[in-house]
Computed example of a mutant assay.
Amino acid sequence: MYDVRPNTIIGFHGCELSIRNKLISNPNIIEISKKPYDWLGNGFYFWENNYTRAFQWANDKYDRGEITIPAVLGAVLQLGNCCDFLDSKFTGLIESYYPAMAEEYQQAGKPLPKNLEARDDGHKDKLLRLLDCATIEYMHKSITENYFSDINNKNHSQFKVFDSVRGVFSEGGPAFPGAGIKKKSHIQICIRNLNCIKGFFIPREEIDFPIPL
Rank of each mutant, 00 (worst) to 15 (best):
M1S: 13
D3R: 08
D3F: 05
F12H: 05
E16R: 03
N21E: 15
L23H: 03
S25A: 15
L40C: 05
N49C: 11
A54W: 01
A58L: 05
D63I: 08
R64M: 10
I67M: 08
T68M: 07
A71V: 06
L73K: 02
V76Q: 10
L79G: 01
N81T: 15
C82M: 02
C82I: 02
C82V: 02
F85S: 01
G92S: 15
L93C: 13
P99K: 14
A102G: 08
E103A: 13
A108G: 12
G109P: 11
K114D: 04
R119C: 11
G122L: 06
C133K: 01
I136F: 05
E137T: 04
M139C: 04
M139D: 01
E145M: 15
E145T: 13
F148Y: 15
S149K: 14
S149M: 12
D150T: 00
N152E: 12
N153F: 09
N153C: 10
N153W: 08
Q158D: 14
K160F: 12
K160V: 15
R166D: 03
F169C: 13
F169Y: 15
P174R: 08
P177S: 10
A179W: 04
I181M: 11
I181Q: 12
C190Q: 03
C190K: 00
I191F: 02
R192P: 00
L194E: 12
G199C: 07
G199V: 02
F201W: 11
E205P: 07
E205I: 11
E206K: 15
D208S: 15
P212D: 12
